[in-house]
Amino acid sequence: MHTLTPIAASSLSLPTDSYIYSITPAAPGTFAAISSDDSLRVFDAANLDRESVIAPKTHDGGVTALRTYSSGDAQLLATAGRDGRVRLWDARAGNGSAAVEMETVKHAPVLSVACHAETSTVVAGTELVSSQAVVAFWDIRSPAACRLQYVESHNDDITELQYHPTRSNILLSGSTDGLVNIYDTTITDEDDALVQVINHGSVHHAGFLSERTIYALSHDELFSVHPATDPDEPTQEPEPVHFGDVRQPLGCEYIAQLCIGSQGPYIAAGNKADHRLDLIPLVSDPAWRFDQDSLWRLPGAHGEEVVRSVYLDEQSQSVFTCGEDGFVRVWKPADDDVQAPVESAKGARPKEKRQKDRFKPY
């Protein structure tokens, strides 16, 4: 076991009793945060006290999601809300006005967002409204109307969206209906676009571990790893690995998320009673398992409050966390620890070996 040391903390000048829901990279050296007062704030990674309010009120009814939208020199931030809108914000403008705004049909509340700047695309996943949960696509150059919608693949709230790491046409969605769906978004017919369906349980988080591997985490902490099938390759795929409820084997009360650093994927496991958060490596050699002997512990974590978001920052070699205590906290490894989850390129293992150890599908 290794230990990360807290080096800084800030409430970002938020009102008392605020929650911080999510953090994500903004411009180089900065991060953005959304919180329970529905604001969007940007802070300096090197000095948390240097923060600015990009929008004091991002959405009526509550902000639900935050993502980075990057294209060339433009560094925009995407937020979604229960008002049925997705908005893009230019942090450099600082005028409290969205640069681009998109709206769902019937003002369906948006719970999840994904962005693909190379194709000028923003995708939203909605709550179930009028018996429909929608995956809606916009081209931000023509934001007035959706360019594509999938309306039949989920029958409950869509909680997760993520693009494939290398293929711009492949999108993953997850829902409280228990399904993780994979689409080829170049296909407009919804039945034909759906290339893979995984039945997991009410999806809290899901995503790509690698180009050929998918993970799923349910709201009751069931975890599984699945091969991404390729319809053009009729070879026999490996069987999925079902870990079941990971709380007892990992000694935790909840799973905050899965995050990927230079050393591979880590699951962020929280324990409020013991005031700690553990970053536990997920390794694939010889078979998928959690390497608990190599975990990184964040002692104290966010006290008795839940950690909501974790980011492994390679640039500053730090771990950023935020939570329901209303604070952003920064953690660093001891100087003599060279296998940190945020290990620099100088100390990292050779790329070929790291990919074999951490990203081999099975």
Rank of each mutant, 00 (worst) to 15 (best):
R50Q: 06
P56Q: 07
V197L: 12
S284V: 10
G244Y: 08
P286D: 07
T58M: 02
G81Q: 05
S120I: 08
A99K: 07
L179T: 14
L111P: 09
S224F: 14
Y163E: 15
R85D: 04
Q75I: 11
G125D: 08
A46L: 09
R354V: 10
I267T: 00
H59W: 03
G207R: 12
E237K: 04
V42M: 02
Q196A: 10
H107F: 13
G178R: 02
K57Q: 10
E305H: 14
R358Q: 11
S284F: 12
A26K: 08
E127P: 15
I140C: 06
C322W: 00
F243P: 00
S153D: 07
G244C: 01
T79N: 02
S262T: 12
G94N: 05
A26E: 15
A93G: 00
A340E: 04
F327M: 14
R212D: 15
T30F: 14
R329Y: 00
P240H: 10
D90T: 05
K57R: 11
A65V: 12
D38P: 09
D44E: 05
D37M: 04
L179Q: 10
L148H: 04
S210C: 13
D17V: 04
V319R: 04
A193R: 03
A340Y: 03
L217R: 01
T119S: 09
K360M: 11
G96L: 01
C322Q: 03
Q339D: 13
F327P: 11
W296T: 05
R147W: 07
G261L: 02
Q149W: 00
R212I: 13
Q149V: 11
V135E: 06
R329L: 13
Y163M: 12
V310G: 09
V63M: 06
H205S: 15
V122A: 03
H59L: 05
S344L: 08
A27Q: 15
I280M: 01
G347L: 08
S210L: 04
A228R: 15
L217A: 09
A91F: 08
G29C: 08
L295C: 13
Q263E: 09
P15C: 02
S22E: 14
R247Q: 02
I260K: 03
N271D: 14
Y266R: 00
A98N: 11
S130V: 07
S13Y: 04
Q75Y: 13
A216S: 14
S318P: 00
A98G: 11
A136H: 08
D220F: 06
A228L: 13
C252I: 00
R297E: 15
Y215G: 02
Y254A: 11
L4S: 02
T126R: 01
L209K: 01
A287P: 09
V225G: 12
K106T: 13
L48Q: 04
A78H: 07
N95Q: 07
G178H: 10
Q162W: 14
S70C: 11
M102H: 01
A340G: 02
P361R: 05
T119E: 14
P361E: 01
Y69M: 10
F290D: 03
S97T: 12
S309R: 10
G244R: 04
Y254I: 05
G72T: 11
